[in-house]
Design a binder for these strands. Structure first.
Lengths: 91, 91, 91, 91
DNA sequence: CGGACAAGTTTGCCAC
DNA sequence: GTGGCAAACTTGTCCG
């Protein structure tokens, strides 16, 4: 017997070890993700320092991510509502 | 002498009382604000339950809040950038 | 006839009116919230004018909120774990 | 002539190229981040398939992060107060 | 659909 | 007074 005496299959300890392993794997990955998040922030900061409008760049990236049709559909709904209360925004 | 003996003007205690008062005033106001925030949430929930598109409503409110010229300026910058990489989104 | 004469079912106009109503309710509430936000600012300004450190006061308020949240959080964690155990051992 | 013929200083085109470059760098990084996010999801899925409660694991990770943050936070509070006292009594 | 998590926007602070 | 920096809050997305 190489393990804790008196326990047949040692399930409680095993569970603890496994939980610890899962938690640490997740934390490791979360750190990686944070690094990438920071890298994105750096790109925008660089763009800004070169005189570009970060807000517009973010908007551009966000809209490219969406399906183009979906964007137009959203704009259409918005425009309809704006019309309904007598205001204009797009274009 | 009605207060703590041995202290001429009791400044330390006074400061503590004042700090406590400021903190509690702020906390009271923060609670009020939270109530109003929840009320706004309720309005949108009601609109949604009546079949309206909440996202479009929020966008409408947000844009009304901005100066109309500012909105057009932001759209213009965005459009310029989109053009610059050969894409179209608005209208 | 209880509604606008000369329009059959008037649905388009109704929607517009409702949208306008929702928007205005939200805007009204947003104004209220802004008032409260300004009140909070005033409290801090007053504290500052009386020689207190605003940053430290803000920290204090934030910390107290965090502590209050922590109680709820701990209850939630307990429930989660209780549930998890219940799932694994009792179900 | 090393660049596009017929354009004096070519600034408009340059801006477009730079915008495109920024957008693509961000999109590239966003993809990486998504991969990591998916990896995390996979870890939880694996844990779940081995009979662990995912919600409890997420809580655990979140709590550990919060605890780690709390240490920094407490240091910050200490500094703030020290500074506040320093301002009031030493300066 | 409701809550947890992540992103973006806004706001307040600080240095210049 | 302004402009960059940091943090809080709000909003949007995604999973259960």
């Amino acid at each position: 017997m190489t393990d804790t005496p008196g326990e047949g299959h040692n399930s409680k300890n095993d569970a603890g070890l496994k939980i610890k392993a899962y938690v640490e794997r997740v934390e490791r990955l979360a750190e990686e993700r944070q690094v990438t998040t920071d890298d994105i922030k750096d790109v925008y900061a660089e763009a800004k320092s070169n005189g570009f409008d970060v807000k517009a760049l973010r908007r551009l990236v966000a809209q490219r991510k969406k399906d183009a049709d979906k964007v137009k559909e959203e704009n259409a709904i918005f425009e309809t509502y704006a019309h309904a209360i007598g205001q204009e925004y797009l274009a």
